[in-house]
C-alpha cells in the first residue's frame, strides 16, 4: 500500500517538475541547474532519518560519509547559486553604468 502512495507522489512530482521550468532565458540556464542541484541536497534529510536506526559500525561509516557529502551539496549549492545570481544582477547594472 505504502509503495503505491509513494509512487503516486513520485509521478505527480515529476509532472510538476516539467511544468515549473517554463521558458527560461539562456542566461539563467546555469543558475537554474545549480539551484535544482542544491534541491537534491534534500538527501541530507534522508541521512538524518537513517541515523535514527544506525546501530552497526558499517552504518556509522555510511552516515558519516553521507552527511559530509550531502551537506556539502546543499550548503555549497545554495551559496554558489546565490553568487551566480548576484553576479548576474551586477553585470546588468554595470552595463547600465557603461562599464
Amino acid at each position: 500500500m505504502d509503495i503505491v502512495v509513494a509512487i503516486t507522489l513520485f509521478v505527480l512530482a515529476l509532472l510538476i517538475g516539467v511544468e515549473v521550468i517554463g521558458k527560461v532565458p539562456a542566461t539563467l540556464h546555469t543558475p537554474l541547474m545549480s539551484g535544482a542541484n542544491s534541491i537534491h541536497g534534500i538527501v541530507i534529510v534522508g541521512v538524518v532519518i537513517v541515523a535514527a536506526h544506525a546501530t552497526s559500525p558499517l552504518a556509522w561509516v555510511f552516515i558519516f560519509l553521507a552527511a559530509v557529502l550531502g551537506t556539502m551539496n546543499v550548503v555549497g549549492g545554495y551559496v554558489v547559486t546565490d553568487r551566480m545570481l548576484e553576479m548576474f544582477k551586477s553585470d546588468k547594472s554595470k552595463k547600465g553604468e557603461g562599464k
Partner: peptide, 30 residues
C-alpha cells in the same frame, strides 16, 4: 534527483521522493 527520489522510496520519506522527482524532471526539461 532521481537517485535521491529512489533512496526516498526505499526509506519511505515524502521529502526525498517529491524533491528528488522534482529535480529529476526539471533537470531533464532544462
Amino acid at each position: 534527483g532521481t537517485a535521491v527520489a529512489m533512496s526516498g522510496l526505499a526509506i519511505n520519506n515524502i521529502a526525498l521522493i517529491v524533491a528528488g522527482a522534482l529535480v529529476g524532471s526539471a533537470g531533464v526539461t532544462l
